[in-house]
Every structure is written in C-alpha cells, then in structure tokens.
Design a protein around this nucleic acid. Sequence first.
DNA 1: TTGAAAGCGCTACCAA
DNA 2: TTGGTAGCGCTTTCAA
Lengths: 344, 344
Amino acid sequence: MVQIPKPAAPASTAPHSVPTSADVARLAGVSRATVSYVLNNTGAVRISEPTRRRVREAAEELGYVPHAAARSLRAGHSRMVLMPAPSVPVGPLYGRFINELQWALGRLDYTVVQHGGVDLHGVDAARAWAELRPVAVLVPGSAIGPDGVAVLRRSGARAVVTLGPEPVDGAHALLMDHESVGHRAGAHLHARGRRRIGVVVPEERGLDVFSRPRLAGVRRALDGTGGTVAELPLRYDERSAARLAARWSDLGLDAVFAYNDEYAMLLMRALQDEGVRIPEETAVLGADDLMLGRLLRPRLSTVRIDLPASRDLAELVDRAVRDPAAEPERHTVRAATVVHRESS
Amino acid sequence: MVQIPKPAAPASTAPHSVPTSADVARLAGVSRATVSYVLNNTGAVRISEPTRRRVREAAEELGYVPHAAARSLRAGHSRMVLMPAPSVPVGPLYGRFINELQWALGRLDYTVVQHGGVDLHGVDAARAWAELRPVAVLVPGSAIGPDGVAVLRRSGARAVVTLGPEPVDGAHALLMDHESVGHRAGAHLHARGRRRIGVVVPEERGLDVFSRPRLAGVRRALDGTGGTVAELPLRYDERSAARLAARWSDLGLDAVFAYNDEYAMLLMRALQDEGVRIPEETAVLGADDLMLGRLLRPRLSTVRIDLPASRDLAELVDRAVRDPAAEPERHTVRAATVVHRESS
DNA sequence: TTGAAAGCGCTACCAA
DNA sequence: TTGGTAGCGCTTTCAA
C-alpha cells in the first residue's frame, strides 16, 4: 500500500527533530512498550527474536538515544551522584582522587556528575544541586551546612557525604583530619630538635579550612614543650615569598611547616636565595608527597596523606543509598606519615 | 462542598515524599499553574500580591525545589553544557581553564556539568553524553570522531565544540596548535646555536595527541638547517629520567625540549645529578610557564601557551547554540611565546 | 507475545 | 486574575 502523506500534517518525522522511542516503534511497526522491552532487555517479558531484531535495527537506523531525564522522571529516581566542583583548584592529588572515585562509582553503576556551583554557598548552593535530583551528593570542603543538607535530603537525595575537614549534621562524613597532619608535622620537627617553628598559612581564599587545622595541630604538638609556633601568611607568588625570606633572620625560626609541597618549594627557593642554609639553619617540611619534592635539593621532607581508597568511599555512598535512614557514618582519615628526606 | 477522602488514597502527602508544585498549590489553595507563574515570575501573567505571597510561603514551608529534569522535559531543551572530564590529568593549567570557563558560561546562564565518561570512547561515549540531552558539548582532547559528533547533533545538541589538537568534521573547533608550540621551541633552540636537539615524548597514555605534534613542530623548525632531532621517550618517574640521563653523553645532544615544565624539571634534575651542566652542555626548554620553572636553578626557559580567554570560548558556545545551522567555526590558538630564562 | 494507557513534574495555552 | 489541561519521553501495569 502506497503511503500518501497527508497535507500539512507531519506524516514522517520533521527533518531535524530528535528521534523518540515512538519513532522507533513506528519504524519497527510495534508499540512503544515493545521498544522499551527490547532496548532494556526486560527479563520478565518474552519478545520474539524477529521482533527484537526489527526494533534494534530501527533504533540503529534512526540513531535513537534514550532520554535520561524522561527515564528518571518516570522511574522516580536516578543513579546520579553529584559532586560540586570546588572553585579553588586544590592540587593534583585531588584531581587524581576524583578520577578514581568516578571510576569506582561507575563500577557500582552510578553516574558521576560534577557541577560547578560557582559562587553559590550554603542553602542556595544546596537548592541548585537539589534541582538535579541526584541520588547522592558528595560535598567537598565545607561548602554546606546542616540546613543545606536538609534541603538536599528533602529533595530526595538518599545520601549526602561531606569530604571536608569537619562533620556536618545529618550528613555522612569523610573527615580529613588536617589537625593531625599538623600534629605529625610539629612532632617530627620537634623530634628533630627544632623549637621555634613557623607554619605557612596560605593567603589564597578557600584554603583556610585546611590550613587552620594544620596550624592548630602544630600548636598542639608543641604545647607544653617550650617550643613556639609562629603563623606565616604567604601568597603563592615569588614576591610574597621573597618578602617573607627577607625578614627570616628577624623571625628567628629554626623550622617551617610550609602547608604543602608547592608552598614549600616556593619558600625554600626564597630562603636559599637569601642564603639560609637548609636544613642546617632552618628545616623545611612540606605535605602531599608530590613528585617535585623528590626533585628538589635538598630533597624535601613531607607529610604524606593517605587518601581513603576511592573504592571505600564508593561503597560508603552505595551503602548510604541503599539505607538512607541509617545513622550518618563518620570516617576519619588520620593516616598521615612523615616522609623524612633531607630538608628537615 | 466537603472533600471526602477516598479510602486507601493518600489524602495528605506521604511523610517522606518530595514536595512537588502540586503540593505547593494545594497548601496555598491555588492551582499548579498559578504556582508556576509565581515561582517563575512569568511576566505575561499578572498575579495579585496576596496570592504571590501565599504561594511563596507555601513553597518555603514545604522546602519545595523545582525538578530540573521535568522542567527541561517540558521545555524541550535545557541550558546544560556538558564537558566530559578527561580521564588523564592534564595539569594545573587545564584545571584553571575549566574553572574560568564554568564561570564565563554561568554568566550566560548556562549550567556546566562535567561528566566522567571514563573508559568510553568514540560513539559509545557520545551516546552516553547524548542521553543527558545537553544543549552543547565541549569535548577536550580527541575523544570523539565525526560519527560521535553526528550522534550528539542528532540527539539535539545544538553545538559541539572540540578543544583538541585537531578538528573534527561537523564540530566547532578550538584548535591548540601544538605543532607551532614545537616549532617555536625548535626555532628558539636553533637560534641559541643548538644543533642536536632531543624532544621528550611522554610515555604516559593519552598525552601523545599533544606530544606528537610538538615533536613534528621541532622537526619542521630544524628542517633544512642541518640540525638533528632525536625522540626521547620518558615516563614521569625518577628511574626513567635517571636511565635517560645515564646515556646522555652517548646521545650527544646539546639541547632538549622537554614536553612541558614538569617533565623538564624531572629531566633537568636527572641531568644535573649526572653532572651535565645546564645550559652550557645542554639547554633545557619546558612548556606551560608554570610557577615551578621560575623556582628552578637555572631558571627554566619555557614556551608559554596563551589559552584563549574563557569568555571568548563561552561566547563561541553561545553563538553556536543560537545558530546551530551555522558553519562550524575553527579557531586556532597559535599564541605561543618563548619565555627565555636561564636554562637555554 | 504484544499493545493500550496511565502518569512521573512541569509549563503554556486557552478559557473563565 | 486564576484554573483546567495537554503533553514533553519514558516505563510498566493490565488486558488482549
């Protein structure tokens, strides 16, 4: 039978519209239901092999791609794990961590999505994320408070996990114990016979959630030992480092915990240019155990922070999703080790 | 008329279900349409102030957050710009670029979403991204071919922009001209009197799309000058660098273009440990102009690559979205400058 | 083995 | 000024 296109009616699909499952059904000569069964390999329903083939070929020919939003709207839930991307670049370590985490969550059939909630904070940020109706949210840093967590949970997020330095009410927490990082650093320097210890505190915004606890940890390590701790604000540029180095002898310090390896490299260079001998006059200690520390001379001592296996975090997320009513878990990453090289 | 709740029907909303606009409407005593008008500040429709207040209060009380998927399903389009996150960490420069781009696109009212299409390639990756029905896709590297672009366009993406080293049919392209980076490097070293030039080619997978053109560029610069170019495979670890340095005198090179600043630092350290004097015996040239280059001694010469202003890229995306039928634009970033310091 | 139809949450048209 | 309602694309019961 010859098809006669009805006038003014879209007999065939409009040229540049996106193919839907209905289009596939039409082309295959079956119903939309059948298309859904075939493409999702629904076990409960038996579809004859010839039909399956016709459907698949039709889908192929049209270049059909299912519509994720429509699907999860219908399903009432999604497998999307949302990770607000931090606006401050926090270093290469973090990037690797994200990648591994994505991979681990992918294995559990979650789709990880990073969403730049740039210049949104607290409840506003939470609301913006909640619009996407993720099944779980991983919040790095301390970008959100208890009320933000509440917003997310009310919007259907079955798990909220904070990755920051401090716990948030109602959310699971993976606590990076930066205080103990500082404590390790302070204890190491003290054990090496240092008594007047400087601690670099980056002036860059957004880093203080890490640097403050580290400073506190050094203070605690030196507490009651007669040693002293001095706070050293530093911007990540040569001028700032040179200024700090210029007044180094006035400061009378015999050691410095430089926040991380990159700041350590910056400061160490400035000190060497000032003629300060390392480690004889001043010990320098970094953190993060980056490659560059091994390339410096003297080789940089550093505090290595063993990030949690991303698989563990992925499993925490999965557990939380399966049992959203469970008590929030609190895991503390306290595994920091001093890698002693030559600079301390 | 008194409402009599039908038996077995949820008269009020279930305790832990997510509030919808219907719930807000019910609580405010208005229709869903009115709720929509109020919350979206629809200009065409006038709603009395008391009604607006009632609606807003109801929304507030319920903690209502609109459902982005439902909204864009209804609208037939979204403002989502999808950026597949590269699985290979490509350095701090890139991270900053992403952040700025997110910001710039945010100003134009797009929502940037990074999606880790981990271990998916070509058409498969394209299909996974297409399920999200983004209005535009920014593809870094060369993760996708013309057929992948076609899949995305058929699924409604109004703009596909590749950020890689080479153009892809059907997509807009922001071409990083790594060949000319290599050419600048080669020309600089040649001008400094170097004739036997090594070029580091990282062995890490995924970096060859950058390193190959750079090598070719050096070759072109030396072509016909009587100078020679040697390919130097190198892994990013100390052992590999030490091995390379150990046979340095056999290689008989008087200069090396080390792919980027990080590889340059690695190799330079290994060479210095071997007693090779820099730059007297061997000139070393990096790329990317990272901070660390300035902190090395001798200070590292480098090729600075001026990334396009993220605002420009954001505007390219916006243009393409507004006029999806337009010819693909091809922009080439050729702005590479040699920053001459002490190592060359 | 297949199809018809309801409905997820939302907005925009048309009517009142 | 407000409400009724169709329908975006999909899955899934219920019927045939």
